[in-house]
Every structure is written in C-alpha cells, then in structure tokens.
Simulated assay, not measured.
Amino acid sequence: MAQGTIGNSEFDRDTALTRREPGTPGTSAVFDADLSAGWTIGHAVNGGYLLALLGRALGGTLRHPDPFTITAHYLSASAPGPAVIRTEQIRASRSLSTGQATLLQVDEHGAEVERIRVLATYGELDALPEDVRTTAKPPAVPPHERCLSSKDGDPATAPEIAGRLDIRLDPATAGWAIGAPGGQGEMRGWFGLADGRDPDPLALLLAVDALPPAAFELGVTGWVPTIELTAHIRSRPAPGPLRVSLSTRNLAGGYLEEDAEVWDSQDRLVAQSRQLARVMRTF
C-alpha cells in the first residue's frame, strides 16, 4: 500500500464529498457521499468513519475549520453506498461556529431514511493558547511489537475495517479474543491508518470509535451499536501513532457507557469521547 498523507490517502478518498448546488456558502450546504464498504463491521458502516465524514461536511460549511465538540445520534444503521449529507450553520461568532448535519440514505423501498443527526461547534485549534494544566496521564501501552494485531487472528473473521487500520491491542485487555475476558471493562492499544497517514482532527473522530468495544472485556459478544456519541477534540495531533484507551463502568438494562481518551506521540491528550451503546447480545 502506498504511503498515505493528509489529503491524499485512502481515508481522505473514502470521506470525499461532492458539494451540490444550490447551497448558501457559510450557512448551509448539501453534499453527496459514497459510503465505502471498506469501513464496515458486518453489514453496518463504522460509526467513527461516519462521524469523520459528517465532520468533513461541517468543516466545508461552517466559518471555522476544526471540530471542537461534536455530538452524533445514530438513528439507524448506515449501509455502504450513496448518501446525502445536509448541513446548516446555526450561529457563528468570532471564535466559534455551531452547526448541524444529517446523513440520509434511500432504503430498499425507495424511501429516504435519516441515519445520523449531528450537532457540533467548530473553532480554530491552532489559535488555542498553549497553557495545559491536567492530572490526566497517557495509558501505559506496551510497544507495538508486544501488542496484538488483527493480522494475528483469522483473516476470514476480521471485519472489513480491519484492513484500513493499524490497531495493536494491549494483550492485557485482549483476553476476550481467546475466550478469556478480563472482566475489567477496559481496552487499550495503538491506533493508526493502514497506509501510514498521520492523524488530524478528522482522524481523531474515527479513532474514538475504532477499537473493539470495551464491553468485550466484560464478556459481551456480538454487536454493540452506538446510540449517541460526543467527541471533544482538544488539540491538533502530532505526527505518529496514537494511543487509545477505552473504559466502561456500568452495563445495565442492556446499555452501557464507553469513555475514550486519545493521546498523540507527544503524550498530549488530543481527544476525548463518551458514548452510550446498546448491547444486542450479552453473554
């Protein structure tokens, strides 16, 4: 695979948008997209990939370029193929812009179905002050060569998205893969794109929902679809692989929360998220 760069990579090609006219620049827009089958888990398109796609659409609509906070409600499972994204700027000030976006597809009956609705606030990451005061610490993840890759398993059972990513899991949080979950509700690992493209804010939106669910380490099996996800982008990431940690503390009533932290190669906390997910099958 050719080395990917920001703006010229598989991720960028698969999140490319075609802007329709009419649309009012700076206030609203309509985009055509083609959801790639390469980012699926089973028959559904990955939620982080979709979040990045909508994030790109809002970045092409709002006055400011970078996502600061973005909240997505996943209304129905997205399928590979054509989609339409409609965006609208709600408010803009000197430092922030707030907008909304929705992704729609046509179902097998020819009816338009809303898949995702997003509300987001954008700004300029490069304009933020450099002062950092934090008690957060990066996760302790073993070196790449001591972590587990999807290539270590049966390729026939790996989801399509595994071929687009370079994920290396901490063996201490991968007991579920051999039928021995640790029971701690944690997942840690390295995250990168398979073609070596460096991370940017859109890649961070993918990263917060790219690792296997932390619920797997509780003994949960099967599909764990996201109901709602809120991501905070805190800084533009430095080049190099990212470290991601996931945790869940409460599975009740068939739903659980999952908190994510994403750290860059300079040990900076560059993204955080929380999602509510549904457990379709428990134990």
Results as ranks from 00 to 15, higher is better:
1 M>V: 10
5 T>D: 06
5 T>E: 08
6 I>H: 04
6 I>C: 01
10 E>A: 14
10 E>H: 11
11 F>D: 01
11 F>W: 06
13 R>A: 03
19 R>T: 13
23 G>A: 14
24 T>N: 07
24 T>P: 00
27 T>G: 00
27 T>Q: 10
30 V>R: 12
31 F>D: 02
31 F>A: 05
35 L>C: 04
42 G>N: 03
45 V>Y: 02
47 G>P: 02
47 G>R: 01
50 L>F: 00
59 G>D: 00
60 G>I: 01
61 T>F: 05
72 A>N: 12
74 Y>N: 04
76 S>A: 15
80 P>R: 01
85 I>V: 11
88 E>S: 14
89 Q>K: 10
89 Q>T: 15
90 I>R: 14
92 A>L: 09
93 S>N: 06
94 R>Q: 13
95 S>Y: 11
97 S>G: 14
100 Q>W: 10
101 A>P: 03
102 T>M: 08
105 Q>K: 05
106 V>E: 13
107 D>V: 10
107 D>K: 08
113 V>H: 02
113 V>C: 05
113 V>F: 03
114 E>W: 02
116 I>C: 00
117 R>H: 14
119 L>W: 01
121 T>Y: 00
125 L>C: 09
126 D>A: 15
129 P>K: 14
130 E>V: 15
131 D>H: 13
133 R>C: 03
133 R>E: 04
134 T>Q: 07
135 T>A: 13
137 K>I: 14
137 K>T: 15
143 P>T: 15
145 E>G: 05
152 D>S: 13
162 A>S: 08
164 R>T: 03
168 R>I: 05
173 T>M: 05
174 A>Y: 05
176 W>N: 05
179 G>E: 08
183 G>V: 09
194 A>W: 03
195 D>Q: 09
199 P>Y: 11
200 D>E: 13
203 A>P: 02
203 A>Y: 07
203 A>Q: 11
211 L>V: 11
211 L>K: 03
215 A>V: 09
215 A>P: 01
219 G>F: 05
220 V>Y: 03
221 T>L: 02
229 L>M: 13
231 A>V: 11
236 R>L: 04
236 R>I: 06
238 A>M: 07
240 G>D: 04
247 S>G: 06
247 S>N: 08
249 R>T: 15
252 A>Q: 14
254 G>L: 14
255 Y>S: 08
256 L>H: 12
258 E>N: 12
262 V>T: 10
266 Q>L: 09
271 A>T: 10
275 Q>K: 13
